[in-house]
């Protein structure tokens, strides 16, 4: 089971994501943004949180154009798994691997707090470790997490059961309370909350551990 974690200049949750993968039993390979290929045999690519390229221009926009970006797209096109968290979610929307965009929070302020998320579907490798409708506690930490898409896209996400998580109490104005969405093949997940920060009860909760355990477990079977 191999997980690649990409580091862009300005990524700051790359170590945290690597630790969460490792705890779940994955072998983690760190990948630099200037690399043009993913290491051979990678099962899942993790795009971490942070402020890639300083969030200059638009969150995730420059990272989406980096040399490794093309390799990530090829990996996704082959049916590979990609998990983007926070800035990673922003990067995935900028790459076009997920629909919609992350706009500035409705309150206009950066917001860091633990929120409740409802698991909106269990039909993917990322959420198969949870019960449908289960409410989990996961922190958010972002300035631009207000998920926005046109009505048609929202209807399609709903119809295809591609909303992975919804906020119980919406912190940022996201449409449809959407906290995380899946690609059409259900293998690319982008989410604003940080499950990698809650994989160890010693540091404020372990509700994120099932996401990594479920994912790695599914991959091991595949």
């Amino acid at each position: 089971m191999k997980a690649a974690v990409i580091t862009f200049p300005g990524s700051n949750c790359d170590r945290d994501l690597a630790v969460a993968f490792e705890r779940a039993g994955a072998q983690v390979l760190r990948v630099w943004h200037k690399d043009t290929e993913l290491p051979a045999g990678v099962d899942v690519v993790g795009i971490p949180g942070g402020f890639s390229f300083g969030d200059y221009l638009r969150c995730g926009a420059i990272a989406a154009q980096s040399p490794i970006g093309a390799a990530v797209k090829r990996h996704a096109a082959r049916g590979g798994h990609v998990l983007g968290i926070c800035n990673g979610f922003q990067v995935l929307t900028e790459m076009g691997l997920l629909p919609g965009a992350l706009m500035r929070n409705a309150g206009l302020k950066f917001i860091c707090k633990t929120v409740e998320l409802q698991v909106a579907t269990t039909d993917c490798a990322y959420t198969c470790g949870y019960a449908a409708g289960q409410v989990i506690k996961v922190p958010v930490a972002h300035h631009d997490g207000n998920y926005t898409a046109d009505a048609e896209t929202l209807a399609q996400l709903q119809a295809e059961d591609r909303v992975a998580f919804r906020y119980v109490a919406n912190p940022n104005g996201a449409m449809g309370d959407i906290a995380g969405v899946l690609s059409a093949n259900r293998r690319v997940l982008g989410m604003m909350p940080h499950p990698e920060r809650v994989v160890d009860a010693a540091t404020g909760g372990a509700d994120g551990a099932a996401l990594f355990a479920g994912l790695i477990g599914k991959m091991a079977l595949a």
Partner: peptide, 25 residues
């Protein structure tokens, strides 16, 4: 104030801001 600060990055925060001392592993 403190919800505008990321208090959990590095995933080692044991006691987040609020009352008294903060603790990191």
């Amino acid at each position: 104030v403190y919800e505008q600060y990321d208090s959990q990055v590095m995933a080692d925060t044991v006691v987040a801001p609020g009352l008294g001392a903060g603790v990191v592993r």
